[in-house]
């Protein structure tokens, strides 16, 4: 190996790329969801493709515009599109239309054990298992994000001015309370232990509430909007995009207030655009605006390996199969890499 390529490993293909499969679709990759060892990928032309063991399904013509949101219900894929349709798609590619809102977009979809949720404008549509008609939960402004807690008893809906927290009682009645913070809230997630609720905001910051006492605070200092964030390793850390480093806030104990985040730098110093936890490990995959993807251990920042070298297209999705054997990386330029995470001898 030449000295130059040691110095700039990103100029060469990585071993992950060499042993993986690359696909060039030329269509923006918008999102992906893991279902067992399959990964369903949504595209900017409304198609969904299913990847399994490096093999790819025929494109499923789901939406006529963009696949805006993707989730799953058991073994089925759920998608929302800018054609106003909310769809359930089987892994065999069979499409079932759950609802059609015409020229209004289906911005967000999620589910919990047969309860299906989509949002359209300021309304959450909630189909309880085996119910034909949805329940409508109305909000004052357009919904920025929606998330169930781990038991499916609470549904957080982010919007302008805060979060509406819907709670289901044992007779399946929903009542709401408000978590208020000025400004527009986008994506919302619960911590994996359900103790915290985190939103990203229109401003370059995140907001969080500790649910037991509803105390709240914010995490700021970002150079850009935080579009990708997730809890890792039993909610020990919240990992976030929005900076040229992956910013990892400690969420053990009472949360991040008064504590400093761990910042993981990467070769090239480009903005981080996507973060994905490594399941059950204190580690993350980080995708950058130049298309490169790294795997790092959070508390040992020197332990970083490069998974994909740059493609010059911003990473828009990373997904890991349930058995943690393979990873899928997608970018805005329509490139996808499917590769095994482990070397043969490591398996």
């Amino acid at each position: 190996m030449k000295a130059d390529s040691n110095k700039f490993p990103e100029l060469n293909k990585t071993k992950f790329e060499n042993r993986g499969k690359e696909f060039k679709f030329g269509i923006p990759v918008t999102n992906a969801i893991t279902i067992g060892n399959s990964i369903a990928v949504g595209f900017g032309d409304g198609t969904v493709r299913i990847f399994r063991s490096g093999q790819i399904s025929e494109p499923i013509k789901a939406h006529s515009g963009v696949v805006l949101s993707i989730s799953k219900d058991g073994e089925d894929i759920l998608t929302g599109g800018d054609d106003g349709r909310f769809l359930k798609i089987s892994l065999d590619g069979e499409i079932k239309e759950i609802a059609n809102f015409g020229s209004r977009w289906v911005d967000h979809v999620t589910a919990y054990k047969g309860s299906l949720v989509c949002t359209c404008g300021n309304i959450v549509y909630l189909w309880m298992p085996n119910k034909k008609e949805p329940k409508l939960l109305e909000h004052e402004s357009t919904i920025g994000g929606v998330a169930f807690d781990s038991k499916g008893r609470r549904l957080a809906v982010s919007r302008y001015g805060g979060v509406t927290l819907w709670k289901k009682d044992y007779s399946n009645k929903w009542s709401s309370s408000n978590l208020i913070w000025k400004g527009s809230h986008n994506k919302v997630i619960f911590s994996t232990d359900d103790r915290f609720l985190v939103t990203s905001m229109q401003e370059n910051q995140l907001h969080f509430w500790r649910l037991k006492d509803k105390t709240d605070s914010f995490m700021s200092g970002y150079g850009a909007k935080v579009k990708s964030f997730a809890f890792v390793y039993d909610s020990k850390f919240l990992v976030t995009s929005g900076s040229n480093e992956a910013i990892c806030w400690p969420f053990d104990g009472n949360g991040p207030e008064g504590r400093k985040p761990i910042c993981l730098p990467y070769v090239g110093n480009k903005p981080v655009t996507f973060v994905e936890p490594f399941p059950n490990e204190n580690a993350i995959f980080t995708g950058l605006s130049d298309g490169s993807v790294f795997l790092s251990e959070i508390e040992k920042s020197t332990n970083t390996i490069i998974i994909r070298s740059f493609t010059e297209s911003e990473v828009t999705t990373i997904a890991v199969t349930e058995d943690c054997s393979s990873i899928l990386i997608g970018d805005i330029g329509g490139n996808i890499l499917w590769t095994s995470i482990w070397d043969e001898e490591e398996k």
Binding site: G44, D45, W105, T142, Q202
Partner: peptide, 25 residues
């Protein structure tokens, strides 16, 4: 907007729709 600019307002729906349109193939 909480950006220290007292009269600064933006159209939230436009931000959402324009970024969605930019994902189109």
């Amino acid at each position: 907007m909480n950006n220290g600019c007292i009269c600064c307002t933006v159209r939230g729906d436009l931000i959402r729709i324009l970024s969605g349109l930019m994902k189109r193939a």
